[in-house]
Amino acid sequence: MCRHLGYVGPPASVGELLLRGPHSLRTQSWAPRDMRGGGTVNADGFGVAWWGPEPAAVTRYRNPDPIWTDPAVEEVLPRLTSRAVLGSVRSATVGMPVQRSSCAPFLWDRWAFSHNGVIPQWRTALTAVLSDLDVAATRAGMTRRYETSHLLEAEALTDSAALWVLLRRLLDPDTPAGLAEDPGTALRLLVTTVLHHTPDARLNLLIGDGRALWASTCYHSLSALVTDDLAILSSEPYDDDPRWQSLPDRVVVHAEPGRLHVEPLEPAESTTGGRDA
């Protein structure tokens, strides 16, 4: 499937983060070490988002061609610096379009989003998920509810783009408020609802707002490198730094400089609760 990376820390070169280490995100595009469930290369496009001095200002660059063919990665993006970056390389699911609008990161407001995975029969599954969210909104007494037409807001005809429509509504405090009190709750609610309808979905989601990162693991790999100064979440470690931590399957992660918090995707299954690392 895909590979992605999120960074929050001291100002860093946007392009350098895509190239950092002997097993950089760019290298992972053609030589991944832990691709699960099919695919050997991530050659169906890439993208990167970065935040300005004000975290609400987020910009992105995307290309439907392989990352190793784009000279901007070495000639332009290294000249840009940011305290927060989210990058992704794509391996398109068979039948889904290979075009710029299909490439993560997807943006909304101050948020950037990437999905590593696949949702089988995604149109049917996500319509059912949307219906469940509508029922939950109704029970909560909300007047602004989820409607099937909202899926038409998706930027591309892909499971990832449609999934982002649902997630960004959970992140929006106004449409509708109350279903998700924080980004971790939004990820948990969305992922568990999708799994209810499609148990074999693969749902490694990654979001950032310029200050912190949140992620879910469901089937695919994810590692974390967190110090007092920076936080990085990556599908695969880009170097041999011993501080990398391999994260377990089916968890929700919150990472920011000096803090890594990991909770089970379904807390009821755990007797220990969350942990900070």
Rank of each mutant, 00 (worst) to 15 (best):
C2I: 04
R3I: 11
Y7A: 09
P10W: 01
P11Y: 01
S13I: 00
E16Q: 10
L17T: 01
P22I: 02
P22W: 09
G39R: 02
G47H: 03
V48K: 11
N63R: 08
P66W: 07
W68Y: 13
T69P: 04
T69A: 11
D70M: 02
P71H: 07
R79D: 11
G87D: 05
R90H: 02
R90T: 01
S91M: 15
V98K: 12
L107G: 07
D109L: 12
D109I: 06
D109R: 10
R110A: 07
W111M: 03
F113M: 00
V118I: 11
R123D: 06
R123A: 07
L130P: 10
S131W: 00
D134Y: 01
V135T: 10
T138C: 11
G141Y: 06
T148E: 15
A154N: 06
L166T: 05
T175E: 15
E181C: 12
L187M: 07
R188T: 12
L190D: 02
V191Y: 12
A201E: 07
R202Q: 14
L206V: 05
R211A: 10
A212Y: 07
S216Q: 00
C218I: 04
C218E: 10
C218H: 15
C218W: 04
H220F: 03
L225G: 09
L225F: 13
D228I: 10
E236A: 08
D239P: 10
D241T: 08
V251H: 15
E263V: 14
E269I: 10
T271L: 14
A277P: 13
